[in-house]
Amino acid sequence: MVRLGKKKALVAVEHSLMTAVWHMLANDTPYHDLGGDYYAKHDPERALRRITRQANALGLTVRFEPIAAP
């Protein structure tokens, strides 16, 4: 079995940076951060399932109700 060790996280960060640089150079665009809530906005149902699954793993029961529009 191969052990990647301490370099595994470093290689993952390097890969992310290289991917971002490649997209910027290929599309001739400046860097644009998608934001911390990109995936929650992109697929809110998936984010809701993830939050529910995490709460259930902690032994909690959750119920979500939509906020009434003002």
Score class of each variant (00 low, 15 high):
Val21Asn: 00
Pro30Ile: 04
Glu14Lys: 15
Arg63Leu: 05
Val13Cys: 09
Pro44Cys: 02
Val21Ala: 13
Tyr39Lys: 13
Ala26Arg: 14
Ala69Gln: 10
Gly36Glu: 06
Leu48Cys: 02
Pro66Cys: 00
Gly35His: 05
Asn27Phe: 08
Asp33Asn: 06
Gly59Val: 07
Val62Gln: 02
Ala47Ile: 00
Ala47Ser: 12
Val62Cys: 07
Ala20Gly: 01
Leu4Gly: 10
Ala9Pro: 03
His32Met: 06
Met1Ser: 15
Ala9Val: 12
Thr61His: 07
Ala20Val: 12
Asn27Pro: 01
Asp43Ala: 14
Val62Asn: 00
Ala68Val: 11
Gly59Ser: 08
Thr61Tyr: 00
Ala68Ile: 08
Leu17Met: 10
Val62Glu: 02
Asn27Ala: 07
Thr61Trp: 00
Glu14Gln: 15
Pro70Arg: 10
Leu34Met: 07
Ala40Trp: 06
Tyr39Ala: 12
Leu4Val: 12
Ala68Arg: 10
Arg50Tyr: 08
Thr52Pro: 02
Val2Ser: 11
Thr19Phe: 03
Thr52Glu: 13
Ala26Thr: 04
Gly59Pro: 08
Gly59Ala: 09
Pro44Trp: 00
Leu25Arg: 12
Ala40Phe: 06
Asp28Gln: 05
Ala55Lys: 15
Thr52Gly: 03
Lys8Asp: 03
His15Val: 06
Gln54Ile: 12
Ala55Ile: 01
Ala40Met: 11
Leu58His: 07
Gly35Phe: 05
Asp43Tyr: 08
Tyr31Cys: 01
Asn27Gln: 11
Asn27Ser: 09
Pro30Tyr: 05
Leu34Thr: 05
Pro70Val: 05
Lys7Phe: 11
Glu65Ala: 13
Gly35Asp: 00
Ala69His: 04
His32Phe: 04
Asn56Ala: 12
His32Leu: 10
Leu17Arg: 09
Arg46His: 11
Gln54Met: 10
Leu25Lys: 11
Leu34Gln: 10
Arg50Ile: 14
Pro66Trp: 01
Val62Thr: 15
Asn56Met: 11
Thr61Ala: 10
Leu48His: 04
Asp43Ile: 11
Gly36Met: 03
Ala12Gly: 09
His23Thr: 01
Asp43Pro: 00
Gly59Glu: 10
Ala68Trp: 00
Leu4His: 13
Arg63Glu: 14
Lys41Glu: 01
Glu65Met: 07
Val21Glu: 04
Leu60Val: 06
His32Gln: 14
Glu45Met: 12
Leu10Thr: 14
Ala68Glu: 14
Val62Ser: 08
Ala47Thr: 03
Ser16Asp: 14
Ala9His: 13
Phe64Ala: 09
Arg63Met: 05
